[in-house]
Computed example of a mutant assay.
Amino acid sequence: MSATRTLQVKARPGARNSSLEQQPDGSWRAELKAPPVDGKANAELVALVAKHFGLRKSQVKIRSGAGGRMKLVELAE
Score class of each variant (00 low, 15 high):
M1R: 11
M1K: 14
M1N: 12
M1F: 12
S2Q: 15
A3Y: 03
A3D: 15
A3I: 14
T4P: 13
T4D: 13
R5E: 07
T6N: 03
T6L: 09
L7G: 05
L7Y: 03
L7C: 07
L7F: 03
Q8L: 10
Q8P: 00
Q8R: 06
V9W: 01
V9S: 01
K10L: 12
K10A: 09
K10Q: 13
A11P: 03
R12H: 13
R12Q: 15
R12N: 13
P13M: 09
P13N: 06
P13Q: 00
P13D: 13
A15V: 11
R16N: 09
R16T: 09
R16G: 11
N17V: 15
N17K: 10
S18P: 02
S19Q: 12
S19Y: 13
S19E: 03
L20Q: 06
Q22R: 05
Q23P: 02
Q23A: 06
P24F: 12
D25N: 01
D25P: 02
G26W: 05
R29G: 04
R29L: 09
R29Y: 14
A30R: 00
A30K: 00
A30S: 03
E31R: 09
E31P: 05
L32Y: 02
L32V: 12
L32F: 05
K33R: 11
K33N: 06
K33L: 11
K33A: 12
A34M: 03
P35V: 14
P35F: 11
P36Y: 07
P36D: 12
P36W: 03
P36C: 04
V37Y: 12
D38M: 14
D38Y: 14
D38P: 00
D38G: 02
G39K: 02
G39H: 13
K40M: 10
K40D: 15
A41E: 11
A41Q: 10
A41G: 13
A41R: 11
A43Y: 15
A43M: 11
E44N: 07
E44W: 03
E44C: 03
L45V: 14
V46F: 02
V46R: 07
V46H: 08
A47L: 04
L48P: 05
L48T: 00
V49M: 03
V49D: 08
V49W: 11
V49G: 00
A50V: 14
A50L: 01
K51V: 15
K51P: 05
H52W: 00
F53W: 09
F53Q: 08
L55C: 01
R56P: 10
K57V: 15
S58A: 14
S58T: 15
S58Y: 11
S58Q: 09
S58F: 13
S58L: 02
Q59A: 08
Q59T: 07
Q59K: 11
V60D: 07
K61T: 13
K61V: 10
I62F: 04
S64F: 05
S64C: 10
S64T: 12
S64P: 04
G65V: 06
A66H: 02
A66M: 08
A66G: 15
G67M: 14
G68E: 04
R69A: 01
R69L: 06
R69K: 09
M70K: 08
L72V: 01
L72S: 15
L72Y: 03
V73R: 01
V73M: 05
V73S: 05
E74Y: 01
E74K: 08
E74P: 01
L75A: 08
L75P: 06
A76W: 06
A76I: 14
E77L: 09
E77H: 04
